[in-house]
Amino acid sequence: MDLKTVKSQAKEQLKGYCRVCPVCDGRACSGEVPGMGGIGTGASFRNNLTALASYSLNMRTLHGAKAPSTETELFGIKLSSPIQAAPMTGTPYNMGGAISERDFIGMIVSGSKQAGTIGWTGDGADPTMYDSGIEAIIAEGGHGIPIIKPREQDAIIERIRRAEAAGAKAVGMDIDGAGLVTMALKGQPVGPKTVEELKELVKATKLPFILKGIMTVDEAEMAVEAGVSAIVVSNHGGRILDYTPGAAEVLPAIAAAVKGKVTIFADGGVRTGVDVLKLLALGADGVLVGRPLVVGAFGGGAEGVKLVLDKMNDELKQAMILTGCQSIKDINSRVIYKS
């Protein structure tokens, strides 16, 4: 199997929902939510890509970084790569339903594990979304991280207990889902959380607690105050609020404020290993990938997911060689060109 075949098969499987464009920049699918696009004008989706593209790299070739290592550690788990699968759900109305929710997330979690990294799972208005993720994590011996929507406190804690029972490596909440109208329409209200409510959730489990959807310095500092183990700098793939900046645009300031106090992940617009390098250089400890892995799953199952992750990791290694980075810890702001 090769990527050309995967993309060709995915284009057929995703027909009417994702065009599998040569450049996945959100232009063709603007406003297609449900679907694979960005909300409204699609500006937030595109801003993720333009923010990444705005950074140039310092090429360095006089050094000894000839065979760089992408190995890293997350909550005590050794991984071969800092690139991880973002939580994604909604195969029937976002991706066309050619693959069931359970099969899709199983491909994501299994393919990620085969690539030496870890897959995150999601939550949604249909109970099968969270259920499927938990089942996939159990099937892989607990090798996965479930993320829960910002529901009422008791509903979140109940899902945390299920994550614990599944042997999950961590658990979290995507606070950027606070405005999801579809959840309310299905009788499952979501909304913002106070710092006190967040503290209650953090204290409700011994698992590392991740807060996904941080886009400002003040909320990053509030997350640290609440005791979370990690944050994800993310605008929910541009699918929640129109005209937000790209994740790479706000990441440096957030990292300057909380780096070392909390693990920092970033996602949004990641298409290559070079994009991964940029986010790591801007302050992330790990990077989440979404849409490219949808193509991998629909076009090649777990093997397709692994293929996409392996390709990105190979690109990351090549970029590390050409920027003088022997390990993930060597990737820092000196990689970024400043005029």
Rank of each mutant, 00 (worst) to 15 (best):
K11Q: 05
A115C: 00
G124T: 10
S229C: 07
I77V: 12
V295M: 05
A155D: 13
P146W: 07
K259V: 02
L277F: 03
E158F: 05
G116H: 03
F265L: 10
I134H: 01
Q13P: 12
M36T: 15
L277S: 04
I328T: 13
M129K: 10
D123Y: 08
P127Q: 12
D123L: 09
A170G: 06
E152Q: 15
G96P: 09
A136W: 08
M320S: 07
E32P: 02
F104S: 01
K199Q: 07
P150G: 00
M183Y: 15
E152C: 07
Y337I: 13
E221F: 12
P189N: 15
V181L: 03
C24G: 14
T117E: 01
T272P: 06
M320H: 01
Y55E: 01
A230I: 15
I83H: 04
A281N: 09
P146V: 08
A226V: 09
D285V: 12
R271I: 14
E200L: 13
Q9R: 01
A86W: 06
P252E: 10
V295L: 03
A125H: 09
G172N: 07
L74A: 00
K206C: 07
E140C: 12
I134G: 00
V6M: 00
G246H: 06
I134W: 01
A115W: 03
E73A: 04
Q13M: 10
T61L: 09
I118G: 02
R102M: 07
P192H: 10
G96C: 08
V295G: 13
Q9S: 03
K212A: 07
Q188R: 08
Q114R: 05
V335E: 07
A266I: 05
N47C: 14
Q84Y: 04
K278V: 15
G296V: 14
P189T: 15
I321G: 04
I160E: 03
L309Q: 10
T216L: 05
A253G: 01
V294C: 01
I175E: 09
I175Y: 12
G122Q: 02
S327H: 06
M95T: 05
C24Y: 11
I214V: 11
F75D: 08
Q114G: 03
A284L: 05
S30D: 07
L251H: 06
G122S: 11
R162M: 14
V250L: 07
S30L: 05
G119F: 03
A319N: 11
L277K: 05
V294N: 03
I134M: 01
T50C: 04
L282Q: 02
P189R: 15
G324W: 00
D314Q: 14
P292I: 06
S112D: 01
V274N: 13
V232R: 00
G122T: 04
G167A: 06
V274A: 12
V295S: 13
T272D: 02
Q188H: 02
P82M: 01
D176N: 15
P34F: 07
P22T: 00
I160Q: 01
E315P: 05
T205V: 00
E32S: 01
K329Y: 04
K113Y: 15
S44W: 08
G268E: 13
G40D: 07
D176V: 15
A136G: 12
I336D: 12
F265I: 13
D285L: 05
V335G: 11
K78H: 15
A223Y: 11
A155G: 03
G172D: 10
K149A: 14
D176Q: 11
E249P: 10
T50N: 09
G96Y: 02
M36C: 11
E135S: 03
